[in-house]
Simulated assay, not measured.
Amino acid sequence: MAISEYLGSRKHIAGSVCGLLGLALTFAGLAGAYWPVVVAGLYGAGALVAPPQRPAVPRFPTPTEQLEEVRADLGRLGDYLLAVELPSGAAERLDDLMVLLAALLDSDRGAELLARDPERLHALSRAVRQDVPEAVDAYVRTRWWTRLAPGQEPPENHLERQLSALHKELTGLAADLRESEARRQESHTRYLEERGGGTG
């Protein structure tokens, strides 16, 4: 621990308070000729009994902040995709997928639900930060090699299958969120009906 940190620590403050008590005893004539030992001893005792300095708990992003980060990453992903040339079939599937991702990350719709559901938020984050860019990048790299060694399965076939699988996964996620909202609505309906029945 640095000297500046120690001077502001609980141990130093407690020791200083006890050392001042030792000086007060000295001025009262109770410490005698051994007053330096008394003051030092009281300081040491105070420093020993003081609670240890507690390190600050690290601050991690809240779910809402994480959601904002994923939304910003979706914008960066969109910029990247604009620079990639894709065949029409894959481009259409990718457009559908990006629309779905944007809808799920819409701040006025799914944000509150996603902020309460870290697993689904992770699934969206993985799709934006890993699954989509890896699928597109793998297509671009494989397409280059296919031009050198034709006759293999077209790489766009794999890309379209990957994008379809992602779209299916995220559509399921959207359905789960919709079901959660429906359950919450039904629960509120029951609560209001039971409350009304209880006061009638």
Rank of each mutant, 00 (worst) to 15 (best):
H122G: 01
L148N: 10
E179R: 14
L163V: 06
A2N: 07
L163Q: 03
G44Q: 06
T142Q: 02
G15H: 02
W144R: 09
L21N: 00
E169A: 07
R93L: 05
L21W: 00
F60E: 11
P118W: 04
D131G: 04
A115Q: 12
S125M: 08
W35E: 09
V37N: 13
D96R: 15
L20N: 00
G197Y: 12
L166N: 00
R183S: 07
A165H: 09
D176M: 14
V57P: 02
K168N: 01
L121M: 09
A175G: 12
S164C: 07
A115W: 10
L148V: 15
T171S: 12
R59Q: 06
Q53Y: 05
R178L: 14
T26Y: 02
R116W: 04
E85A: 15
G78S: 07
R59V: 11
A33T: 15
A174C: 09
L67H: 10
E160S: 15
G151P: 14
R129N: 14
V84K: 14
P87Y: 03
V140N: 05
L121T: 06
D108N: 14
R54W: 14
P87E: 03
R183T: 02
S88A: 15
R161I: 02
W144K: 08
C18P: 08
P154E: 11
G32A: 05
R54T: 14
E186Q: 01
A56Q: 15
L25M: 07
A40T: 07
E169K: 07
D137W: 08
L170A: 02
W145A: 09
A174R: 15
E119R: 13
H188E: 00
R143P: 03
S187C: 10
A40G: 11
G200C: 11
L166S: 04
L30E: 09
D73W: 05
E153I: 13
K168F: 01
T199P: 00
A127I: 06
P36A: 12
P118A: 02
L30W: 08
G151H: 13
E68D: 14
K168A: 03
D108W: 09
T64P: 04
T199A: 12
S4P: 05
K168W: 03
P61Q: 07
L94Y: 03
V39A: 08
R120C: 01
V37S: 13
L30I: 10
G75E: 03
H158L: 05
L97W: 06
Y139R: 03
G78T: 08
P55F: 13
G198C: 03
L192P: 01
A149V: 15
L163Y: 02
C18H: 00
D96I: 01
E181T: 11
G151T: 12
S4H: 12
R147K: 11
K168S: 01
Q162L: 04
A24N: 04
L173H: 09
E112S: 12
P118F: 04
L124A: 13
G29E: 06
E5C: 09
H188I: 00
A175P: 01
G75K: 06
G78L: 01
Y34P: 06
